[in-house]
Design a protein around this nucleic acid. Structure first.
Length: 596
RNA sequence: GGUUCCAUAGCUCAACUGGAUAGAGCAACUGCCUUCUAAGCAGUAGGUUCCAGGUUCGAGUCCUGGUGGAAUCACCA
């Protein structure tokens, strides 16, 4: 709760006590922003208090309003419309608020809360390059990490790379059979894309084999299992697990190519990790915990020696946690990795940024950790985000309907360059400055587009139309920042300071008041975004700030103002807006240019 | 079929967790560059918030039942 809100709530609480001898704790009083069509900034809805006070809505509103005028230093006026008490805060108070924001070096960072949080995201497979879906994941994970850090957490970003398993063997096998020794160097293809090519190749050849078998009279299910390539891939997996030299060497070589490719993609995205885990190192974890679970009677064995948990009492199903032959399934590793991660970084919270197709898996996993009485179980959280759909429907890598991450980012840079040139905005920029600008803008547009919607919701991405540079977009906000930067440069040139005397500014323009009242809610927005793990709150907030500033910019003169104190105040206001935009955008992982 | 999630303007999304006349952007139309960057600003038009009930001072938001869509229900990950 902001400073203003708590002051108002306390005042209102006192009003109830003094007028009606009614005890309404101040944290029970919720204020909402006043709608634009009415005078004021904060509104109290009085309906909930009518019974206890035995008042008519208008009367109650008026009485509380009168009380606040008399007893609160910050309320300067009020009006009552039906059951809504709209409060106006004095200009002087707003000016003080602005001054405080302006004086702070960093604004929007909350004090440390002493808690540790681990955020796991990205988690790519090493058998194909990153695509649009990964971009949403990566941007979300990166942004949420930054938001949590701003909200006072000690954050560790981790990436659990899926570098082993049958799907990895598929591309290895296809490469071995059809690759003819080509490498990223000889082919000129980026490592991850090269491996992706063989993953697709495997699927094509595999399908051919299946068709042949079906023609020979085999049914489809059997053909799936008996196709020679599939059998070979399984043999290869077995060899890998046995540590066969040749297989491991090939695996290392090919994964090395992929990592080099991924590193380049991450660099372009502007994303990094504090630690990278590999499934090849963690996939055996969890088996000892299964034993522990059996001893604690949480798991049980079936006749075939497989181990299960019965969650039917929790509205879930029976779930296998270890195969009869003693080998792991997906959830076995996740159980083990949970402890492993906690051992590495004793977190209070652990966030998994994973698509909503795995909702059930995480529900089960968290329930298991809870039953195993892990003290951190309550802090496990699945940040479940919706899929990114294309106009043609769902993306499917094997059908070639994916939007490749590298390609998409390059397109964004190209579009940014084209737009910038068309608008004639590159004069005075060196070539490297211009290139940096295109990257900043292109990546800003893309990140903003993917982060401005509620993570939980699935979203549509239309490559033709989705990426705009006007309106509710990243570049719009970046542009506002560049505009303000120009103002600040000029202010510096003119020697205008941003320190002003609040008592010497006689009045505030409605535009100014609107912006200041917005700016003061920033820390609250950060808190809310962290609590709900949603960068969308930040994205929409920053947009509103930029939008309001542009309205102000259009209507109110800064350097044409004769009143020197007002001029300084307006420069301070501009500087504060720029600061909030820069900080807000940085929480989204987006840079803002000084000029564009 | 069971479970979970979703449905708001032609399109893409908001709506501060139950509050006032549901808001932005895109697309369409109309104005504003001799003045701090027009990637901007101001305005017009666009809505039975999927449908039907219910809860209450008050419902896009909560409950019940439908309709339509998605995910999941593997000894895959």
């Amino acid at each position: 709760m902001s400073n203003i809100e708590s002051q108002l709530s306390e005042g209102i609480s006192a009003a109830f006590k003094d007028i009606f001898s009614l005890n309404v704790p101040s944290d029970k009083i919720s204020l909402q922003p006043t709608r634009k069509d009415f005078e004021g900034t904060h509104t109290l809805v009085v309906f909930p208090f009518l019974k206890e006070t035995r008042q008519k809505p208008e009367d109650l509103g008026t009485q509380i309003g009168d009380y606040l005028i008399k007893h609160s230093r910050i309320v300067s006026a009020f009006n009552v419309v039906k059951g809504f008490l709209n409060l106006t805060i004095s200009d002087e108070f707003w000016l003080t608020q602005l001054q405080q924001v302006n004086r702070l070096k960093t604004y929007g960072d909350l004090p440390s809360n002493g808690q540790k949080v681990m955020v796991e995201f990205s988690s790519p497979n090493t058998n194909k390059p990153l695509h649009l879906g990964h971009l949403r994941n990566n941007f979300l994970g990166d942004s949420v990490s930054k938001i949590l850090a701003a909200a006072g957490y000690d954050v560790m970003k981790v990436n659990l790379v899926n570098d082993r398993g049958i799907h990895i063997c598929k591309s290895m096998l296809a490469y071995k059979k059809f690759g003819e020794g080509e490498t990223p160097e000889t082919s000129g293809i980026k490592g991850d894309h090269l491996i992706g090519k063989y993953y697709v190749k495997f699927d094509q050849e595999y399908k051919k084999e299946m068709l042949e078998l079906i023609e020979e009279g085999m049914d489809q299910e059997e053909a799936k299992k008996k196709a020679p390539l599939m059998l070979e891939a399984q043999t290869m997996l077995q060899k890998w697990e046995d540590g066969d030299d040749e297989t491991v060497a090939l695996w290392k070589k090919m994964n090395g190519w992929v990592y080099k490719g991924f590193d380049a993609s991450y660099k372009t995205m502007g994303i990094d990790f504090d630690k990278i885990y590999h499934e090849s190192e963690t996939y055996l974890l969890g088996k000892d915990i299964v034993d522990e679970g059996i001893k604690k009677n949480i798991f049980f064995k079936k006749e075939d020696n497989s181990t299960w948990i019965d969650l039917r009492g929790e509205k879930m199903d029976e779930k296998l946690v270890l195969r009869g032959d003693g080998t792991s399934v997906y959830i076995t590793q996740d159980i083990g990795t949970c402890d492993y991660k906690h051992n590495d970084f004793p977190f209070d919270k652990s966030v998994y940024v994973v698509g909503n197709e795995q909702d059930y898996h995480f529900k089960v996993l968290f329930k298991i950790m809870e039953k195993l009485e892990r003290p951190y179980a309550g802090g496990l959280y699945h940040l479940s985000y919706g899929m990114v759909d294309l106009p043609s429907g769902k993306m499917k890598s094997r059908e070639g309907t994916v939007v490749d991450a590298d390609d998409l980012m390059q397109e964004m840079f190209d579009t940014a360059e084209k737009q910038t040139r068309e608008l004639g905005k590159i004069e005075g920029l060196s070539e490297t400055e211009a290139q940096n600008l295109y990257r900043t803008l292109g990546l800003g547009a893309l990140k903003y587009f993917l982060l401005k919607v509620d993570p939980k919701k699935r979203m549509l991405f239309n490559p033709q139309e989705s990426i705009e540079f006007q309106g509710h977009t990243g570049p719009f906000i970046q542009y506002t920042h560049a505009r303000i930067s120009a103002i600040l440069r000029r202010a510096e040139g003119l020697g205008v300071e941003t320190e002003f005397d609040t008592s010497k500014v006689d009045s505030l323009h409605p535009r100014e008041l609107e912006i200041i009242s917005k700016l003061v809610t920033f820390p609250e927005v950060v808190r809310e975004a962290a609590e709900s793990y949603s960068p969308a709150f930040i994205a929409n907030f920053v947009y509103e700030v930029a939008k309001e500033y542009n309205g102000f910019y259009q209507e109110v003169q800064i350097f044409g103002e004769e009143d020197k104190e007002k001029m300084k105040m307006r420069v301070a206001l501009s500087a504060s807006v720029a600061k909030v935009i820069r900080k807000g955008m940085s929480l989204l992982g987006i840079e803002v240019p000084e000029r564009m």
